[in-house]
Design a binder for these strands. Structure first.
Lengths: 208, 208
DNA sequence: ATTTAGTTTAACCATTTGGTCAAATTTATG
DNA sequence: CATAAATTTGACCAAATGGTTAAACTAAAT
């Protein structure tokens, strides 16, 4: 039955996402994914022949969830300050919704940078649009207009993304070391991050 | 022979560091560690009875390498601006020397946050000194003196560490997505990060 | 030279793990 | 209903993996 098939495949993907993101490619067990999906291990292999195939699908889904958004915002026609605001706001919302994806993707890419190539093939948008170069042109225009202090687009992008992602990826350290493992304090901290990061970045580049 | 013993144990630790940092706890194989150390697998178990014991030693070494430095700098008697300068400079040098440690520690801590507890026992310094609270007092003093804009110590610390660590931890993404996999461009980028991060942070909090 | 303690090895073991297969069950089709 | 096709399962397999053991080797101590 088509309906049941889709339900099963959906269950598998959900389970695989969960287990892979929590345990990583090498730590994840096919048996655990099958258990989580509430199915037999053989059925898992029936839908996705190998662990690698399943993993590729999952990391591809994770990657796809994060990158299109970046491109749309940075490529839009608004001012630099507005871009920072919209980007940080959207990105932090997205991370809050999928808190395990950034660490998962970063870790797996470190384990096997080769993955990025196949990821690019299926997310063909970044390089060819010259996105960063365009954003850099906009930046330098606003620099010349005396709106912002001199800064390079690459540094700015890395800063913004880093400020957004780091507190989540390094959650155990931030929550443990800085907040003495107090979950509430950590969550409150995250809630005020959006406003803070926007302030922090704009404050840094705004011309007095 | 004592000399040979130390040499073997040293070789094992070096090999374990390398393999664990590259493959992670779950991805690392005792056989590969033994091969890397140029010894037999049984000898590996002779020195460190289990994989867990060896792993604990390695992650403890990694953790110890990074945290004492933070404490000494942030607890010293210099101004906020000087602290930012010295900290970023020292931290980026340290990361350059051990580029795989941050990602390794972050990832393993996400896999098993429990590790942090045993890490604290052997690095007993952070919480009891009230380091962050002291730094926050210094910050608020300089805020009142009109030297810096209002900011919380926790946000500032997370920002600084994040700005330092992110480009290294997310190396495949930064190098791949932003620099089209051009190693030289990426390395040049890292070289100018020290100056840039210091500028970026101070610029953000400095009162006009 | 013999004993003793520490070191190293090859062979082995039990368990885990990714993956397979034939049979059973369910669903769609004539 | 009957047959074919797709789906699901339990049992099984080979390879990998963490760990053990008994024996061999080395170097110092008696």
């Amino acid at each position: 039955m088509v309906d049941n098939q889709e339900k099963t495949e959906e269950k598998i993907l959900k389970a695989a996402e969960e287990v892979f993101q929590k345990k990583g490619m090498t730590g994840a067990r096919m048996q655990e994914i099958a258990d989580t999906a509430g199915i037999n291990k053989a059925l898992l292999h029936y839908y996705y022949r190998t662990k690698d195939k399943l993993f590729e699908k999952v990391i591809n889904m994770a990657f796809s969830k994060f990158f299109p958004r970046v491109i749309n915002i940075m490529g839009s026609g608004i001012s630099v300050f507005e871009k920072i605001e919209v980007f940080v706001s959207n990105y932090l919302d997205l991370i809050a919704k999928h808190p395990f994806i950034p660490g998962f993707v970063i870790n797996e890419l470190n384990r096997n940078p080769q993955i990025l190539i196949s990821l690019f093939e299926k997310n063909i948008r970044l390089k060819e649009e010259g996105l960063i170069d365009k954003f850099n042109i906009q930046l330098q225009e606003e620099v010349e207009q005396g709106i912002i202090k001199p800064i390079d687009a690459r540094n700015l992008m890395v800063n913004i993304v880093g400020l957004c992602i780091f507190p989540i990826v390094a959650k155990p350290i931030v929550q443990g070391v800085i907040f003495g493992n107090d979950k509430k304090q950590y969550n409150d901290f995250l809630k005020q991050r959006k406003e803070h990061v926007i302030d922090f970045v704009i404050s840094s580049i705004k011309m007095d």
